[in-house]
């Protein structure tokens, strides 16, 4: 059974179609990355999942319960961290963390003090005086203080320094080890690349690609660079091969190009008798995948 199951989800705000048929399914125990540019619909999807916004069409379920009607029941088992944490100015960070834990009707506070220490957080300051990163810590500490079945994280690390970002990654790893499920929306692609088992890319309210990072790479291009002992003219036909793009030769004789993965066999056959001395093929980074999706569509 999927933990999150979204199908043909649509959300309109007046004339704006914010979500235009989103399909997404997150399995138990996986860390799921959710990426896309600003305004693509990530936060809207998450707000629908949290029962804050009512879907115009389609269904969204968590733990096989309807996200709108059974919101309160679902929320007993989830933890949420927004990208922009707004706190109550007259409460201290410690008070907010305790309040959030109590609202989740939990009496185990085992991780609270440990997390405050790991995140190097001062809980005695009034919330109004915290910086962006420190406000983010309040929500993160509250979220990880109590074990949840599902973590919904909407750009949770915005404003965190790289050291704290590492602590966050450890927290995710620990949650995963406990068997929890994580939906992580983020702009920090290295974070997603490192943490996530599967990824969905959203654009203009539609999911345009989903799957494992490896799976996505198969559908795209690898970057190939090679050197040959043969005269440059022998490679003349390379540019004409289907699936070869951006062919370049630099001053040192290094040839580089992008190759559609589907054409790998044909390209290698062409290169087989060209006295190749050295060949490197690198899969695209998530960043490159992301760019491909956004520039080419």
């Amino acid at each position: 059974m999927s933990v999150i199951e979204i199908s043909s989800l649509k959300k309109r705000f007046g004339k704006v179609q914010a979500l235009d048929g989103v399909d997404l399914s997150v399995e138990a125990g996986e860390v799921y990355g959710f990426i896309g540019p600003n305004g693509a619909g990530k936060s809207t999807t998450i707000r629908v999942l949290l029962g804050l916004l009512k879907a115009s069409e389609g269904t969204a379920r968590i733990f096989d319960k309807d996200v709108w009607h059974d919101a309160v029941a679902i929320h007993r088992d989830i933890a949420y961290v927004p990208g922009d944490v707004n706190l109550w100015n007259n409460l201290s960070g410690g008070e907010v963390i305790d309040l959030f834990c109590r609202l989740r009707k939990s009496h185990e506070h085992s991780y609270r003090d440990e997390l405050i220490e790991r995140f190097e957080f001062d809980p005695t300051k009034k919330s109004g005086t915290y910086s962006k990163g420190n406000r983010q810590k309040v929500a993160l500490i509250a979220a990880f203080s109590v074990a949840a079945r599902l973590y919904i994280l909407d750009e949770p690390t915005s404003g965190l320094d790289p050291l704290m970002e590492q602590i966050f990654r450890q927290c995710i790893a620990e949650a995963k080890a406990r068997g929890a499920t994580v939906l992580l929306s983020s702009h920090i692609l290295s974070e997603v690349e490192q943490l996530c088992d599967r990824i969905s890319i959203i654009r203009s309210g539609k999911i345009i690609d989903s799957g494992t990072l490896d799976g996505m790479r198969h559908l795209t291009r690898n970057h190939v660079s090679l050197q040959t002992d043969a005269p440059p003219a022998t490679l003349a036909g390379l540019a004409e091969l289907p699936g070869v793009h951006h062919l370049k030769t630099d001053a040192a004789g290094m040839v580089s190009f992008d190759m559609d993965n589907a054409e790998t066999a044909a390209v290698l056959a062409f290169l087989a008798d060209k006295s190749i001395r050295h060949l490197v093929s690198t899969p695209p980074s998530l960043e490159e995948l992301f760019m491909t999706h956004y520039v080419s569509h």
């Binding site: 410690g94 609202l103 005695t124 300051k125 009034k126």
Partner: peptide
């Protein structure tokens, strides 16, 4: 000057009503 706050919430701050009251108390 800004005063420091408590490190832990008091037992009275435990739900949505007590939070609302805390906000409106002043």
């Amino acid at each position: 000057p800004q005063r420091r706050g408590r490190a832990h919430a008091s037992v009275l701050l435990r739900g949505e009503w007590s939070l609302a009251w805390r906000e409106l108390r002043g």
